[in-house]
Computed example of a mutant assay.
Amino acid sequence: MKILKLLFCLIFISCSSGRVLPKMVSKPIEFNDERKELSLKYLDEHYGIKKDVPEIEPKMIVIHWTEIKTLQESFDTFKPVHLSEKRNDIQSAGKLNVSAHYLVDRDGTIYRLMPETLMARHVIGLNHLAIGIENVGGTVETPLTDAQLKSNVFLVKYLSKKHPVEYVIGHYEYTLFIDHPFWLEKDNSYRTKKVDPGLKFMEELRRETKNLNLRPLPGN
């Protein structure tokens, strides 16, 4: 009921301001008992968190790009329970597949892949409290679009009203949190270098969401 009320308020505000809300579609990935167990194992092994259900309290939103050209290929990457053998860079950190809570197509359509309060594997050190938003594209041939930016702005505002979100970061900024209380990664060798979703995209996103009064990044 609270979610419906929130969506109604957002729709009313959008219509009153003459803006059109992005389309939101449910497109769930596989989250069966095995994915649940792998998620619980990941929480324990990487963060020292022991739970019966892989639930999180979101305090952060992390923006990504898939570096994959199409929606279907991007979805097919996240849907399976097990990590692809092609991901040699993170195979040693567990069998749980990478995923995100939302996937935004290049036309701005938002696909909800899983509940925001379940853990998704999308950012080292911070999955235990981070909502992941993936954007289709990010290649030379498929740069992120204005429609995607608008949908990301909408999602950040929507999610910040639902959850106690303190930070919104680009994936490339995750290492700024290594000495922050949010950082729980136990494996000091588990790091990847990221550039998504690009500096320009994050600058524009922050400009459009500055009224949320989110916390500045560590060191700023």
Results as ranks from 00 to 15, higher is better:
136 V>H: 05
49 I>A: 11
190 Y>F: 15
193 K>N: 08
54 P>V: 11
210 K>D: 15
124 I>F: 03
60 M>I: 10
38 L>I: 02
174 Y>I: 07
7 L>G: 00
115 P>N: 08
39 S>N: 11
40 L>D: 12
156 V>Q: 05
195 V>F: 14
137 G>E: 01
128 H>I: 02
97 N>C: 01
31 F>I: 12
212 L>S: 00
144 L>R: 01
23 K>I: 08
57 E>Y: 05
1 M>Y: 06
78 F>V: 03
146 D>P: 00
50 K>Q: 14
157 K>T: 05
129 L>A: 13
117 T>F: 10
34 E>A: 10
192 T>L: 15
12 F>M: 06
99 S>L: 03
131 I>L: 02
16 S>C: 15
72 Q>I: 13
52 D>N: 14
62 V>I: 13
213 N>W: 07
80 P>Q: 04
147 A>Y: 12
80 P>I: 03
68 I>Q: 04
15 C>D: 01
104 V>R: 00
176 L>P: 02
216 P>Y: 13
63 I>T: 11
36 K>D: 10
215 R>P: 03
78 F>K: 00
145 T>R: 12
112 R>Y: 11
106 R>L: 09
219 G>S: 09
128 H>V: 02
2 K>R: 15
49 I>H: 08
116 E>A: 14
111 Y>A: 09
2 K>T: 14
199 L>R: 15
160 S>P: 02
44 D>T: 09
66 T>L: 06
33 D>Q: 12
128 H>Y: 01
11 I>V: 07
84 S>M: 09
153 V>E: 10
118 L>T: 14
132 G>Y: 06
187 D>K: 01
49 I>Y: 10
79 K>Y: 15
162 K>T: 06
67 E>C: 09
208 E>I: 05
11 I>Y: 08
92 S>F: 11
154 F>W: 04
142 T>I: 04
59 K>A: 01
64 H>W: 07
119 M>C: 13
196 D>W: 09
68 I>E: 14
143 P>A: 08
51 K>D: 13
207 R>W: 12
85 E>H: 05
211 N>C: 06
118 L>V: 13
202 M>E: 06
13 I>C: 11
96 L>H: 03
129 L>R: 14
109 T>C: 00
35 R>I: 06
220 N>I: 09
115 P>T: 12
177 F>H: 08
25 V>N: 06
195 V>C: 06
118 L>Q: 05
54 P>E: 07
79 K>M: 08
219 G>W: 15
196 D>Q: 13
134 E>R: 00
198 G>C: 07
45 E>G: 02
167 Y>M: 04
171 H>N: 15
104 V>C: 07
179 D>W: 12
31 F>S: 11
129 L>Y: 10
36 K>V: 10
46 H>E: 04
180 H>V: 13
157 K>W: 03
214 L>D: 05
190 Y>H: 07
182 F>M: 13
137 G>C: 03
28 P>N: 11
74 S>Y: 10
65 W>L: 11
193 K>H: 14
171 H>M: 14
169 I>F: 05
106 R>C: 04
214 L>S: 03
218 P>M: 09
175 T>Y: 12
25 V>F: 09
163 H>A: 04
153 V>G: 02
159 L>Y: 11
106 R>Y: 01
21 L>M: 11
108 G>C: 06
198 G>D: 09
